[in-house]
Design a protein around this nucleic acid. Sequence first.
DNA 1: TAAAAATACTCCATAGGTATTTTAT
DNA 2: ATAAAATACCTATGGAGTATTTTTA
Lengths: 310, 310
Amino acid sequence: MNLRDLDYIIAVAEFEHFGKAADSCHISQPTLSTQISKIEAELGVKIFERNSRSLQITAIGATIIARARAIQSEVREIHNLAAAERDPMGGSLRLGIIPTLSPYLAPLLLPPLARACPRLSLEWHEDMTHSLVTKFLNFDLDFMLLATLPESLDSDEFLIQPLFTEPFYLALPRTHRLAAATSLAMSDLMPSELLLLAEGHCLRDQIVDLCSGPALRQPTANDFRAASLETLLALVEHGLGVTLVPALALPTNPPYDSQGLVFRPLGRDGGSRQIRLITRHSFGRPKLRWELAKTIQSHLPKTVTIVNSL
Amino acid sequence: MNLRDLDYIIAVAEFEHFGKAADSCHISQPTLSTQISKIEAELGVKIFERNSRSLQITAIGATIIARARAIQSEVREIHNLAAAERDPMGGSLRLGIIPTLSPYLAPLLLPPLARACPRLSLEWHEDMTHSLVTKFLNFDLDFMLLATLPESLDSDEFLIQPLFTEPFYLALPRTHRLAAATSLAMSDLMPSELLLLAEGHCLRDQIVDLCSGPALRQPTANDFRAASLETLLALVEHGLGVTLVPALALPTNPPYDSQGLVFRPLGRDGGSRQIRLITRHSFGRPKLRWELAKTIQSHLPKTVTIVNSL
DNA sequence: TAAAAATACTCCATAGGTATTTTAT
DNA sequence: ATAAAATACCTATGGAGTATTTTTA
């Protein structure tokens, strides 16, 4: 067996098609076929059940592929360790981040991080929690910044580092009847006026949980299934409703207003989310982990609360 | 980089000598030299600091080698998984076991294990705790049976499974003044008559801890530094002293006596040790782990107490 | 019959060998 | 002076290519 062979079985598992997998590995289909056959002969088990019409991964194949991904990740990490030795704040790093955090954290984090680690090559993967976790478990991400913790991360091999708690704010059109109120609670809202993100966003679920009080605006055919907070805020600005946003979505300076929008804190227990940094314990560059966490915590606005300050 | 390259850097790290490492890899010294150079060039770091008289592992080299060992272990485990798929109770398994347990457990465990897993290839590594743990951490053992838990095993990546608790018995010459006593306590012993194993055996340390009561027989030039319990029992049989042995060291059937020896239970809190099975969570053959633990627990004499029965 | 994997064969990159030189104590 | 690693250069295994055949839905 060979390290390259691991790429090959992972590619076949990914594409479930020898031709496409071969392309992705930049080799010919016959070469891939022979190599896979050799591996299967060496191990004495079929990794893929295949014929000219279909391809399936066998049970043992799936466990082998999981190990192969882990091995590849370790090999990558050897390269990263070496790169970090040549340049402690260099190397490459793959960060996953949720869409309701990414646009607000990026401008805060990237400039100081580039200053602290000038030669660090950062891959920024913006996706919803579920997709990020899948990639992470496949060793395709080194770090994740999440607001929720799926059960699949309930394992000792992962390091979960709370960074900050971010309260929710009510976003209102400036012309809204509640725009001038000094203190607001969820119960002041009309059930129908709350706008939500599309399903799959953890923020949507958190707000739904929070709003067990006022009946939720049911999704209808006319509902705009907003894919981003920015879109949602545009709807609010045009008077189509109100929404809850995490603190980082606010304009950076008080009074936190922008053109047609005003943001109002919610009273005690108005809700908040905790942003956590997730890695594997086996991530081999502790200084880089520390630098990342520290840089995030050091450049947050006063609207959020630092947890576990470094 | 190549899987074989990992063998090479591990071999050089092991022998600290290119010629010997090359021999162990069955390649020539120049081939090894060129390969190591290539790896170092690829990673851009020196793994070994070397000249014609000395060889040292660099700091980054040590971390790379640790990863390399982990990768090799994963690769081995892929082969083992495949072997286990062809034959669920087959494959190979490397078990480390302490010298004060090995001679008593081996005859109990091996026949039923061979019956349960006829084609399992078992490597039996008998050594003291410290050496076993070193091998285990280097991924050179799959399982350990230990009576103590060094701090280096304080990590979530290891699975520690208590199997049974084994009380200590006092071993006396048949002619001893206490041989006829029905109930004994540590305080009945004369400080000078207690014989101990050589240093390094966990059993020695446990008995020393237990015997904070009677002053210990101090090692002198005349002391026989017994390397095994069997040797110690031979000394006892010849009237040179008494000793404490774990229950499994007793002859299998009551009245638990053999030729010139008698064994007497100690009263409440006469001491005991707990035997634990240690693996990595990443060990990929849970059925085999279960079978091993179960087979051990199923074939123990009544003198020990099963913990966490499977 | 058509899409996909397997086979047959040829080629070449690179791991590995032998002979020799360089290095550092 | 000597032990050990590095270099030079040659060999050959096995990974990769192209052309073709086999398979099965």
